[in-house]
Write a protein that binds this DNA or RNA. Structure first.
Lengths: 299, 299
DNA sequence: CGGTAAGTTGAATCTAGTCAAGAAACGTGG
DNA sequence: CCACGTTTCTTGACTAGATTCAACTTACCG
C-alpha cells in the first residue's frame, strides 16, 4: 500500500485548469490537451477547447518504477521524455520485457479492463510522463466530442504494435529479431527528430534479449555478426547503422518493406479468397541462415 | 475485390432501431446492446437504453474472409458463434496467424488508428459476427455515458491478450507453447459453457504452429509427447485433457502444487518502493506480483 | 473407391541456449 | 588520479531443442 504514494499524490490533480497549475507532478509542470495530442501524433483541428484542460507531469528517475504490475489502475501515462521498459516480473525474479516505451508512447493501457496494471513500468533513464487519469479523459471527451476517438486510436496503435511484436517473435530468427529491433528503434528515433542511423541504446543486452525472446549472449552475437558484416557498427551501446537496406534485408530477405518492421499495411491484391492451396514446395529463397548476409558482406 | 461486397451491403445498417430490423446481416438477425455487452462479458446495470439500438449480424462461411488486411476500416466485429483466425499475409504468400477469435472476442480493432485493417480475418467454421460500426458505437456512447468505457475495456483486454502471447513466444519452448495454447483454449471453451477437458480443434497443425511460432511437425511432436506423457489424449483434432495440473506444470515448471493459482485481481502488497535499483545491487527481489498471464493459462 | 489434404514419425542438420572465461566500461573511494 | 570491484559485454566450446527433409498413415470428400 505504501508503494503507490509517489503517484497517488499526483492522481487527484491529473486534470487541472490552466493557470491554477500549482506544484504537481514535480514542479507544477503541466501539459495542455493540445500538446498532448501533438505528443501522441494525433492532431485535432478544433481550437476552442485546447486551452481548457491540462495534465500533470511526473518525473521518474532512472531505475524507478512508475507503476507495478498488480497496482490498482487509475491513470494512463504518455512518455514525454526518456525511455521505459514494461515488464512482467516472474515470481522467481526473472523478468520478461514487453516494450520499450519512448517519447509519445502510451503506458498503462493494459490495466483498463481488469482494473489492475498487468505490467510494471520502469524508467531506463530520467524520464518524464504525462499523467492522464482515465476519469479525467472521459470527462474531457464528454465536453469535446471531437476527442471521442483519441483513446481508441492510441489503444489501436498499441494493439498493432504488439501484434507486430508477436509476428517478429513468431517468424524471425535471432539476427532478424535484432535487426528488426534496431530498425524499429531507428524509425522511432527518426520520427522524434533524432538521428536515424546513429544512436545509443538505453537498455542492456539482457533487456533486449528478454524483449526479443533471446538470451543476452545471442543478442551480443547477433550484433557482432551484423557488425562484422558491415551492416552496422557496434560499440557497447553505441549503434551506427551503415547500411539500412541490408538491415531490412536481414529482417526480410525477400522484399524490402518500407517502414522498418511493419509487414505490408496494404494487402497484396492477388489473393484468392482464402484457401490458397499451395501444395508444392515453397520457393523460399536460400535465405536467412546466419551465413546468408555474411556472404553479402564479403561481396 | 469482389470478396468485400458481402459485408459492404451490411455496413450501412450496422445500427438500427429495434423493430425495424429488416433483412440485413444475413436474415434480418440483429443483436441488442444488452446482448452485445453480455456477449463481451461486460454487463451494465442500466436498463433504460438497453432496447434502443441493435447491431446487425453477418454469417461467414468456413474459409471465407470477413475482412482483409488493408481494407478500409469501418466496423468492429464481435464473434457470436464459430471460430476465426486473424493473419498477417506475407508478400511471399506465407501467413502468420495472430489469434483465434472465438465467441465473445473482438476483431478489427487493429484498424481503428490507421483506418485500415492490419490483419485478415478468416472463418474456420460457419460463424456469425456482430457488426459494430465505430460511428454507431460513438453515437451510442454519446447517448449513454455508462457505455463510456465499453470499447476501452475491450481494447484493453485485447492488449493484455496479445501481451500474454508475446510472453509465451518469448519464454516458452515448443511443449510449453502448445500446453499454454491448449490451456487457453480449454479456459475459453469452459467460459462459454463447453467442456473444459474435451474438445475438438478447429484449426490445422500448421495454423497452430504459425500461431505459436513453430512448424507443424513440432506441434505434432509436442502433442504426441504430451499424449504419451499421459497428460492429454490426442486423436487428430480431438483433444482430451486428462491432467490439467500437469499441463500447467509444462507451461510453468516452477510454481505448481495444489494451491490453485492465485486470483489475478489482487496485487502482491509488500513491495518496497525503490528496490528497482538497476545500477546498484541486484537483490534478487522476490517480487510476488499476481501475474495476470497465469490466469490466462490457468483460468 | 480413389485422390487429396492433414497428421504422424524418424533421421540429419542447424540454430539458439548453456556453461564458462575473459575484456571493456562504470562508479566509488582511497 | 588511479586502483578496485561491479556490471556489462564479448567470445568460445558444447549441448539441447527446433527445423528440415522425407516417408508413411490416417481422415475426408467427391
Amino acid at each position: 500500500m505504501t508503494d503507490a504514494n509517489s503517484h497517488f499524490d499526483a492522481l487527484d490533480f491529473g486534470t487541472m485548469e490552466l493557470g491554477t497549475s500549482s506544484a504537481q507532478g514535480h514542479e507544477g509542470a503541466s501539459l495542455s490537451v493540445r500538446e498532448l495530442t501533438r505528443l501522441l501524433h494525433i492532431d485535432y483541428p478544433d481550437e476552442t477547447w485546447l486551452a481548457r484542460t491540462a495534465f500533470a507531469l511526473r518525473r521518474v528517475r532512472e531505475g524507478e518504477a512508475l507503476v507495478h504490475a498488480g497496482d490498482k489502475f487509475h491513470s494512463l501515462y504518455v512518455v514525454r521524455s526518456g525511455c521505459f521498459k514494461t515488464v512482467y516480473t516472474d515470481y522467481s525474479g526473472s523478468e520478461q520485457v514487453l516494450a520499450f516505451p519512448m517519447c509519445g508512447d502510451l503506458m498503462g493501457a493494459d490495466g483498463i479492463d481488469s482494473g489492475h496494471y498487468s505490467s510494471t513500468a520502469v524508467s531506463l533513464d530520467t524520464s518524464e510522463v504525462v499523467i492522464v487519469p482515465l476519469a479525467s479523459l472521459a470527462r474531457l471527451v464528454n465536453e469535446c466530442p471531437s476527442l471521442e476517438d483519441l483513446l481508441y486510436r492510441v489503444l489501436s496503435r498499441e494493439l498493432v504494435r504488439v501484434q507486430n511484436m508477436a509476428w517478429t517473435l513468431g517468424t524471425l530468427g535471432a539476427e532478424g529479431r535484432v535487426a528488426a529491433f534496431l530498425l524499429n528503434l531507428s524509425a522511432r528515433l527518426g520520427a522524434l527528430g533524432y538521428s536515424r542511423c546513429s544512436f545509443n541504446l538505453r537498455m542492456t543486452r539482457q533487456e533486449i534479449g528478454s524483449y526479443l525472446g533471446l538470451k543476452l549472449e545471442t543478442v551480443s552475437r547477433a550484433l557482432s555478426a551484423l557488425n562484422t558484416a558491415g551492416i552496422i557498427q557496434v560499440h557497447q551501446r553505441s549503434i551506427d547503422i551503415t547500411d539500412a537496406d541490408a538491415l531490412r534485408g536481414v529482417v526480410d530477405p525477400a522484399a524490402c518493406s518500407p517502414d522498418s518492421v511493419m509487414p505490408p499495411p496494404e494487402s497484396g491484391p492477388a489473393r484468392s479468397t482464402v484457401n490458397d492451396g499451395r501444395r508444392g514446395r515453397k520457393p523460399r529463397a536460400p535465405v536467412s541462415s546466419g551465413l546468408a548476409w555474411r556472404q553479402l558482406a564479403a561481396a
